[in-house]
Simulated assay, not measured.
Amino acid sequence: MVTVEGPRLATADDFPGIHDLVDRAFHKERGGMAARIPTCYDEQFPEHHAVICEEGAVVAHAAAVPETLVVGDGDLACRGIGGVSTEPDCRGKGYMSDLMEFWLDRADAALFELGGDRQRYGRFGWEDGGRELRYRITERSLSAAETAAETAAEGRAYTAGTDLETLRGVHEAEPLRVKRTRRTSERLFGKRGVETLVVDADDPSYLCVDRERREANVVEFGGTEAGVRALLQTVFAQFDIDSLTVRTPPTHRLNPLFHEVSSVWTTAPLRKVNVRDLGTVLAAFQPQMTARLSRHDVEPETVSLAIEGEEGVELQYEGALSISQTDDPDITLGRRKLTTVLFGEPSQGATVRRRSPLLEAACPLTYFVWPSERV
């Protein structure tokens, strides 16, 4: 009889086994996951990890890293799920399901987000939520769009001691992001596989590039149009790459620049989200929703929503948006369907949104987790 322990929170003693498991499951290099996703594999916080052990050895793992999503003028407590992995010989025993249920039962966050297969995680309540734009830039497409701005200062390599606070300030001006500590910023800007370039100016700019493949990716950027344009030119001048893909929020102020210099662009789902506390989620997005309702000149309206089997939330708009609980919701949907109404593509959930001018104007809600921040 095999002795099974867990799911349970990890301890510091479990970390060697966690690192070994996730490195073999994902990056195939020793220490790879800790170096590439430092926000997740931080040994100062073993309580962010859950494990299942057989005969004392870690055979299954899932992390749930606390995050604070900044969504314009609102903040939302969230957890990012990452590193979901099981030893090949232990698959089929339900360990992944046990770990997902373990974290969802400990729902100290209003929202859980993750990347991964939509069908695999859908049965636990996750659904596609949010959007990102992806701009593919080549040296040719960038050259075709060159303007007088090409004379801007050339980018240089990031220097941790000199540039950290400056880049932190630039990033903190982004209206959609995950809040960071200074230590988190330091680890992200210096993590394995990413090169950060900086343009010095009165308004500094930066670009974080993962170029381990010839199809390189910008995992984070910030600053001015002129500065970012100069950094794009620096990347193609200094790096041997075929293309550069930039992922941005759908509302980012620099999207016109990326559209101008790209060879092709697409829109794609951002992450999968699992709404655990509908009232808290809507309260965090209240300023964003109010701004949209004001722009669309929506008439006064009251509408209420609920996830099946849970308490309803009433939205009342009369020039300002108020949110309260209700026992008699107008619209009750399954967890995934309601996620689609709140966060899905404009075409998804549209039938339900059209039932309410308030919902149609205020949704889909917009958030963003930069590629550098994803666990």
Results as ranks from 00 to 15, higher is better:
277 D>E: 06
319 G>S: 09
112 F>W: 09
211 R>Q: 09
48 H>E: 13
159 T>S: 12
169 G>C: 10
364 P>S: 14
219 V>G: 05
136 R>L: 05
52 I>Y: 05
365 L>P: 00
108 D>N: 06
134 R>Q: 08
349 G>F: 08
129 G>V: 04
39 T>F: 07
356 S>Q: 07
358 L>D: 06
20 D>M: 06
307 I>C: 12
31 G>S: 06
276 R>A: 09
164 L>Q: 02
335 R>G: 14
114 L>Q: 00
171 H>F: 11
371 P>M: 11
88 P>M: 12
343 F>S: 08
97 S>W: 04
305 L>M: 05
84 V>G: 14
46 P>N: 05
234 T>Y: 02
137 I>W: 06
142 L>G: 00
180 R>A: 03
207 L>T: 03
27 H>Y: 14
331 I>V: 13
149 A>L: 12
229 R>G: 10
331 I>N: 01
255 N>A: 04
285 F>W: 14
174 E>P: 00
86 T>A: 14
244 L>K: 00
106 R>P: 03
334 G>M: 08
181 T>H: 07
81 I>L: 15
329 P>V: 05
247 R>A: 13
152 A>R: 05
241 I>E: 01
194 V>E: 06
17 G>H: 00
329 P>N: 08
139 E>L: 03
332 T>Q: 11
152 A>D: 09
130 G>S: 08
310 E>N: 13
148 A>V: 07
135 Y>L: 01
